[in-house]
Design a protein around this nucleic acid. Structure first.
Length: 476
RNA sequence: GCGCAGGUGGUAGAGCGGUCAAUUACAACAGACUGUAAAUCUGUCGCCUACGGGCUACGGAGGUUCGAAUCCUCCCCUGCGCACCA
């Protein structure tokens, strides 16, 4: 245990209130119960679990880490848990599972970068330092018998209740009214791409009520909406059932057992982790009779499409991105995301967040608010100075369309080469693509468009190569 | 184990013996426009090319054929149903 003043934490009412509300979706079992504990001044142990499949932490992780930091500041015991065991087994929902399995070496490497990134927010040294733990330490030791016993705390029904499983178990359709994905149980596929309702016994009707908007959709409407969309090549439509691997049921068990092994009081995570975190709550209660709290944080997602920020969406901002890069990526996020960024990904006071958000509503240029948000984020993960520079740089390059101050240096073996080789040297992976870019007028040398890929170019240091809108290189 | 339906490019999903490097949509990339983004419009979107074409691809391995993503055989994988087990 900690040597100095075990069991004491700061009970700052205002800070605790913000902790329990800013960016928070739900507190289990109740917000009031957790507030009581925090206000009592008891020092609690809490953690955030991270899946080390990628070497980067991104803005989605950041809000959770920020929360950890705030708990740390209040004197609570903070643990960052690496899901190395989970990572080694591979994400079951991913078709490329075999490839995402991690070796010990990769885990170690990822750990290094994780710690560096997390330490921008969290303190790993000094008083009340945050700890890092690995779940392979206990999960790897469980015997088959123990695993079975763990499994006995859950029912198949509970597992199947999960939205993600339901969607993969049944047909889903897009509600014609609100556009949200809905489950259509009891159906079989039709050759035209629609579905056929299977009516068991009496109680079933073919129509469905949308769980999101409450619209009453008739069976015909559902099928028609789908078919119309299909014909219009909008492709959404119906989603057929997809496989569920048995081992996927064990994910909540593994993650849940983490709570038991570390004997924690509280776990924080995104709303997408609700089920897994609550599994830990169940286990902790069953095995140790302890009441674990869970805080779910709202995900950083596009409010209009409901899409999470992710690598595949290209909206991923990594915490170890270079300042200019990070700044640009945030500027490129949809306008609608700005309030979320301000509230969830920065430490700026909540009053200022509401002030900026209301300015946005009043019709102020979203770009200006976004500039503030971007600068705040970069300031947090790098430094206020670098953030300011990144902002100036961005304005110069994108608003005024000038050259960036320090474009990446490009080292060439020879300073006389064909245009196409130059483009390849700048990192374009294939010759065909390089040729295409040249044909599309995307390649500029010192602001002059170059159109002939065979042209021999003689470069001198400090010449600027530009490919497309965002890629700049300076000859070394 | 049996039966049925499937496995196609980053994704969804057409094609079912030649005209298929493979319709289309989404994503991506480039250009125009703009307040960054989005939206919109235009173009590109396997690799290589002396721009004639060449090469590698439609779960895997064989086969039929002048010719296969398309037909046959075996294998692997998935879904559904049945059976087995309980």
């Amino acid at each position: 245990m900690n040597k100095s003043g075990a069991g004491k934490a700061i009970a700052d009412k205002a800070k605790i209130e913000e902790l329990l509300s800013r960016g928070v979706d739900t507190v289990y079992p109740t917000r009031d119960a957790l507030r009581d504990v925090l206000m009592s001044g008891k020092r609690i142990r809490l953690y955030l679990g991270i899946d080390p499949t990628s070497p980067h932490l991104h803005l989605g992780h950041a809000e959770n880490i920020i929360m950890l930091r705030k708990f740390q500041d209040l004197g609570h015991e903070v643990i960052l848990l690496m899901g190395d065991f989970t990572g080694r087994i591979g994400d079951p929902t991913d078709k490329l599972a075999a490839r995402t399995q991690l070796t010990d070496k990769q885990v170690k490497e990822n750990l290094k970068t994780f710690k560096a990134q997390a330490s921008k927010v969290l303190r790993f040294t000094g008083a009340n330092a945050a700890q890092i733990k690995f779940n392979a330490k206990w999960l790897g030791k469980l015997t088959f018998e123990e695993v079975i016993k763990l499994a006995s705390h859950f029912t198949v029904q509970q597992m199947l209740e999960r939205d993600m499983f339901q969607k993969r178990l049944n047909f889903t359709y897009t509600c014609p009214k609100c556009g949200k994905e809905q489950i259509y149980a009891h159906a079989t596929p039709r050759t035209d791409g629609g579905i056929r309702s299977v009516e068991h016994g009496s109680g079933l009707t073919k129509s469905r009520v949308c769980t999101n908007c409450g619209a009453h959709n008739t069976f015909e409407a559902i099928n028609n909406a789908i078919l119309v969309k299909k014909n219009a090549n909008e492709s959404e439509g119906i989603r057929a059932p997809r496989p569920i691997g048995l081992h996927e049921f064990f994910y909540p068990l593994m993650q849940g057992y983490d709570s038991v092994a570390m004997d924690v009081d509280l776990e924080v995570g995104g709303t997408d982790q609700t089920f897994n975190m609550l599994a830990g709550r169940t286990l902790l209660k069953a095995m140790k009779g302890k009441e674990k709290f869970v805080i779910t944080n709202r995900l950083l997602e596009d409010p209009t499409t409901g899409k999470k920020m992710s690598k595949t969406e290209g909206t991923l901002v990594n915490l170890d991105d270079e300042p200019n890069d990070m700044f640009g990526k945030i500027m490129a996020l949809p306008d609608e995301l700005i309030p979320h960024i301000l509230e969830l990904s920065t430490m700026i006071p909540i009053e200022r967040v509401t002030e900026l958000t209301s300015k946005l509503k009043k019709g102020e240029n979203p770009r200006d608010i976004k500039l503030i948000a971007s600068e705040e984020v970069v300031a947090l993960y790098h430094s206020p100075k670098l953030a300011k520079e990144a902002r100036e740089e961005w304005v110069r390059v994108f608003s005024h369309k000038e050259k960036p101050e320090d474009a990446p240096k490009l080292k060439l073996k020879t300073h006389t080469l064909s245009l196409i080789d130059l483009v390849l040297a700048a990192g374009i992976p294939s010759k065909s693509e390089a040729r295409r870019l040249v044909e599309q007028n995307a390649v500029k040398i010192n602001d002059a468009v170059k159109k002939d890929s065979g042209e021999m170019i003689t470069l001198k240091p400090r010449d600027i190569i530009r490919i497309g809108k965002h890629r700049f290189f300076e000859i070394a």
